[in-house]
Design a protein around this nucleic acid. Structure first.
Length: 286
DNA sequence: AACAAGACCTGCATGC
DNA sequence: TGCATGCAGGTCTTGT
């Protein structure tokens, strides 16, 4: 489900509820997610204060004042639900649902629920010291908004890559945070075919792609992410970026950039690359 | 070393 | 209505 914009939306929603708050209880109802939730996680977090909520790629990092860091990934279907006493229109605590795997409560009476039907998500524990070397984090590429990540840096990471640009961008070592939606959307905005060999995206093409990635992610975050089925902002609100998709899930529809008739262009095409659907306009993307 | 395919899960839409 | 099939915002692990 969630790519960088959805994860960032969740992080921002959690900030007012968790930052500088004490975790009063941490209840693990089901441990067997993508990786087993560590047995000592609840004990380490209970009674501790949340110092900061950061994001790295598609991971939310909950940094505690006691030096521990919880690493949360939402997988394909993960959601965060928030409830607190002052919420408009919500009187009493919500009933727990089938796939509510972890429940946090704060000393202010708020509830944060991690729900994940497919259980591809994960919740792991690290310490500040070991975080950078954590196996899930150590191989990640640059953050898309890192000032050091520019067109030249992207080109350097694509150099010599003998795979499609689509596959290279899905690879989190190239740049962190893109997934199936935003790769298709970024390549459309950059005018680059998803089938193009990654190593041929250099120079001006790489500059354009870098800009497209930043623009797409910025627009998507501003819209609260994309809701296809699972994603919700933590307050329950939907994301809205799906209404701005140019190509993703738009198979057969008119390309928003093509002025000539759809009969001539054939509209948005859908192909499969590395086992995932790719959407693009064959006329505008080369 | 680099790349592609397989594996892990549940839920939903579709078609017979 | 019931059942089989295919597909879904990810990525680690295995095989070539």
């Amino acid at each position: 489900m969630p790519e960088l914009p959805e994860v960032e939306t969740v992080r921002r929603g959690l900030l007012p509820v968790l930052e500088n708050q004490v975790l009063e209880t941490v209840t693990v109802r089901r441990r067997d997610l993508r990786f087993p939730i560590p047995a000592q996680l609840a004990k380490r977090l209970t009674g501790a204060t949340v110092a900061a909520l950061d994001r790295r790629a598609k991971y939310i990092l909950m940094r505690m004042t006691n030096g521990y860091v919880a690493i949360l990934h939402l997988g394909m279907s993960g959601r965060i639900k928030i409830w607190h006493p002052g919420m408009a229109g919500m009187g009493k605590k919500p009933d727990l649902e089938t796939h509510d795997h972890v429940i946090f409560t704060t000393d202010q009476g708020a509830m944060v629920i991690f729900n994940d039907p497919r259980r591809f998500g994960s919740l792991l524990l690290s310490s500040d010291n070991e975080l950078a070397d954590h196996k899930l984090l150590k191989n990640l590429g640059p953050e898309p908004f890192d000032p050091a990540f520019d067109g030249a840096a992207l080109a350097a990471r694509l150099k010599g890559r003998n795979t499609s640009i689509k596959a290279a961008l899905l690879d989190q070592r190239t740049v962190a945070g893109l997934g199936n939606i935003y790769v298709s959307e970024s390549l459309f905005r950059a005018g680059i075919s998803p089938k193009r060999l990654a190593r041929t995206v250099q120079g001006g093409r790489a500059t354009k792609l870098h800009q497209a990635i930043q623009d797409v992610l910025t627009d998507a975050i501003a819209a609260g992410g994309s809701t296809l089925r699972d994603h919700r902002q933590p307050d329950g609100e939907l994301g809205y970026f799906q209404h701005q998709f140019a190509v993703y899930d738009q198979t057969g529809k008119a390309c928003p950039g093509c002025t000539c008739s759809i009969r001539k262009t054939g509209g948005i095409k859908q192909i499969v690359q590395s086992g995932r659907s790719t959407f693009y306009c064959a006329r505008m993307q080369r």
